[in-house]
Write a protein that binds this DNA or RNA. Sequence first.
DNA 1: TATGAATGAGCTTTCATTCAT
DNA 2: GATGAATGAAAGCTCATTCAT
Lengths: 219, 219, 219, 219
Amino acid sequence: MEEYSWLKNILEQEIDRITDKQKAIIKSAVELFSEKGYAATSTREIAKKAGVAEGSIFKLFPTKKDLMLWITERIIDTALFPMVTSGISELLEKNFKNREEFLSAFLQNRMALMQEGVPLFKIIIQEIPFQPEVRVMLLEQFNKLPFNMLAEKLGAMETQSGLGETDTVKIIITCITGFLFLRNIMLPELFPKSRIKEDAAALARFMSRGLGSEKERDL
Amino acid sequence: MEEYSWLKNILEQEIDRITDKQKAIIKSAVELFSEKGYAATSTREIAKKAGVAEGSIFKLFPTKKDLMLWITERIIDTALFPMVTSGISELLEKNFKNREEFLSAFLQNRMALMQEGVPLFKIIIQEIPFQPEVRVMLLEQFNKLPFNMLAEKLGAMETQSGLGETDTVKIIITCITGFLFLRNIMLPELFPKSRIKEDAAALARFMSRGLGSEKERDL
Amino acid sequence: MEEYSWLKNILEQEIDRITDKQKAIIKSAVELFSEKGYAATSTREIAKKAGVAEGSIFKLFPTKKDLMLWITERIIDTALFPMVTSGISELLEKNFKNREEFLSAFLQNRMALMQEGVPLFKIIIQEIPFQPEVRVMLLEQFNKLPFNMLAEKLGAMETQSGLGETDTVKIIITCITGFLFLRNIMLPELFPKSRIKEDAAALARFMSRGLGSEKERDL
Amino acid sequence: MEEYSWLKNILEQEIDRITDKQKAIIKSAVELFSEKGYAATSTREIAKKAGVAEGSIFKLFPTKKDLMLWITERIIDTALFPMVTSGISELLEKNFKNREEFLSAFLQNRMALMQEGVPLFKIIIQEIPFQPEVRVMLLEQFNKLPFNMLAEKLGAMETQSGLGETDTVKIIITCITGFLFLRNIMLPELFPKSRIKEDAAALARFMSRGLGSEKERDL
DNA sequence: TATGAATGAGCTTTCATTCAT
DNA sequence: GATGAATGAAAGCTCATTCAT
């Protein structure tokens, strides 16, 4: 496994609380959960891959589920949230020629993050439908996201765009989520990697235009 | 469990090949896989829910995985494909005032299907990342979808829209997938059901406008 | 292990409900619990001794504790109760020369039962202090014992004996329990088996005399 | 846990050999063995309750069994023996109006000791059937008990009492053991605490009378 | 075809014990 | 002396699967 920076961050945060062996356990669990799914991964495998005794897992995490929830929580709080908000403030502060430029940059930024975030998302996505605890964690973090600032940046579209009361931001998120999810998690085979730039550019233009005619002002 | 029509279709297709007990097995498996996931569902549970003996499962399906793959295959071939294409030809033949109207109708149609398709999608989505066989099945079916006809209907956008060579249809699919996936599978809590009509209308307008100025002709 | 008749009775009661293998499981469990104690006996051992697969135990008894409680319950209801009351009615109906004769016969009867009941009592005694469920079972059965009839047989001692309001029967039970318990369970080494008859006779005389001067009537 | 004096005695005897932490270990072990039984108590629990590290137990006691045997030995030698003989010499020296008075005082004395001795007895009783080492220890100590003096005190009953060669003392012990054991360890629910005085008085009279007509002399 | 007792490998978890710090 | 991370054997238990009936 590559050395994912978000995993490194999670582990460094616990640096004085957990040992190297325990880090290895978490790392192995993340890899295996992402590869095979939580239910299909045995603690024996995790221990073997981490090079520790099976019993060592349960010193740190009373149950296998605790291990999974700890990882999921850390991923959501320590990795996902920063990842999702990463670069957002820079993007929001920066001036763009127009909305399309902004959305293009925004999308590029998302795609870059997705690159190394795939195993992370795989873990979360597979557990969301079945683990209520994960849903709750996720929704809590979701509500902290700076949607209003993004909305502002996109312009006071609510009246102009004719999109009615619907939250502009939700549409954009919906769009980007579909784009990233289909390409990276579900059916990467359907979307040639070689054309990713053009596809992203096209989506940015599509979204920008979809939001309606732009106010004449700096973004 | 409600009596899902797609499930009924699948079972009717096998009507002279399988017994009522076997039907019950398949039905229970579908329900449980959808509720708890494949790996977390035991054959014992399936048998109990179906009201059959544990051993009876293995007459028809040599292994648990066979049962899952059979279900997945049937879902993809017999349920998913018709579901995805359902109403499409009608939509394609019908005349709409404009593209937004068409997209709106298209989206409504998708959402209606989603209503009873959720358990079906849950099963497929959870297996896609981990079961290569499922990915292959899905891709095969995907290529049979009448994308070109949809593209035609949406207009020869390629030059007009300025979206470049990117497949217009893929963008629309991406959009709609994100919309349905987030709302129905991942985080329904985030999207109030009461506003679903407005949200869909807004998305239709958004997509229509995103595709660029429309040719002056009947849709 | 000898073929204890009380065990045979317990098993025969379930004859159409459980299989031979399952009987073997129960038999092994009884033997091992009695030899080593419940907590010190592993399900693996039980299975091995019974000549069955370990998993088979858990088909019949969801947990090891369930197995123990089932056995304890059956022992108390099906074996202990009949054993404790065994021969009592005959004793109560029979005429004795005097109270000492009756008590002697009573004690002989108890001792005979103890012979093959030792493993049974070992199981119950070891669990009583730690398993509230067992205490409850035992107390329930205890209240069904025909103490009043025994009291009658012993004579209306309450006034004559000068033992006050204290239940005469409880004293006799206390005495006999101590006798049987010390000799059979706790410290058999302390009491030479060769002298058991004299010891029993002495105790009978002791008890008879302890109860006070006897009414002049047939017992 | 109350501060049992016998436990304090045991610990004080080792005062210059063991540390406070080690004392805490022993104390915790005694409590837990008495509450849940030896086999059902884990060293982890003992360590936690004692507020020490898990490993610390094994400095003083190479194995868990060593810990138990040490405790049992100390209990038998340092606590049980003095407890059983406690007050006996005073009782033996003191003059009583008659045998009943003496037996009553004897029983009172036993009951008082039982008060705080219950956990101690629980530990011993549960191990006796399964640990040969404990049986041996117990029998050794048993033989040191001043039975002959007790017999003398009770009078030269052998001929008078008509109990034959049977050891009078054994009958008395049997009786008292049954009384204490049933009331304190096995089924306290069966004997209302409120009537304990009357019950004891009745038993004393019962035993005294059971021993036969008394020599006319000071006890 | 249907059953469900039986299997035994493998699961998660606990345990007493070791040992570097 | 005290710690507690680490161990690995063994615990209780679940599982998919087999097969005699």
